[in-house]
Amino acid sequence: MNFQTMNIDKMKEENINKILVHIVLIIGAATMLIPFIWMILTSLKSFHEATSVPLTIFPKTLKFENYSSVMEALPFMYLYFNTLIMIAARIVCALVFSSMAGYAFARIKFPGSKILFSLVLVQMMVPSQIFLIPQYLIVLKLGWLDSIPALVVPGFVSAFGTFLLMQFFKALPAELEEAGVIEGCSQWQIYGRIMLPLAKSSLIALGIFTALFAWKELMWPLIVNMSLNKLTLAAGLACLVGQYEDITDFSVLMAGAFIAIWPMLLIFVIFQKKFVEGIALTGTKG
């Protein structure tokens, strides 16, 4: 058997493999996409058409009024803005505080660290619903009800972030900080000069996760903020459902859902390479 035929055989095999991979991936992608496509299609149907049997897949006439009526029902500009501010503030808090705490927990042996870190873990194990009322009372005492800062409060510290960054810092080789110790750096300098730059990719990952968690928060904005123009997109959408408590107009709801999610989808699609690369870099030596 000569070298060439072996190569061709291998290439053939690889091609078949690739096709198989594509088929599996396409099936998966379709499953992921269908709900979104159905959302868009439904949002363009009239109520009458959306609730007719048999179903129509494509709207007979495009009913863009669904979009204008949902824009009337919800102040989307405010919602976008509030969501953005809340996410940004939470990211800053999470990155600054969690990286400091995560570093200290991972790399400094200090009395009580185990107990303190277990408190971080405890927070992650408890369903967030039990914090609703105590945190509401804090916001209320601060006089922050119905304001943008109120949206940020539960994200002031991130137990998840502390956990994530602790895991990351722990994986870094010890030589790094020994070099720092020999040079006479303080712990703070080791953290700021040596470790933090290495953690850039983890920080990006944490930033993305914080954004996602904040974006998905539903109950909290509804509890602390009353005005529609102080709510976030997710909460505003929940209010929209409430406005149709008797007759659910799915077309309008789908229009609302689509308006609410497309900016995030777009941001994601544009920056997805950065996102994924950032995450993929996390702790080059996992």
Partner: peptide, 8 residues
């Protein structure tokens, strides 16, 4: 919901 059934 009953209202939606009625409307549909």
């Amino acid at each position: 919901k009953p209202g939606t059934m009625f409307a549909s």
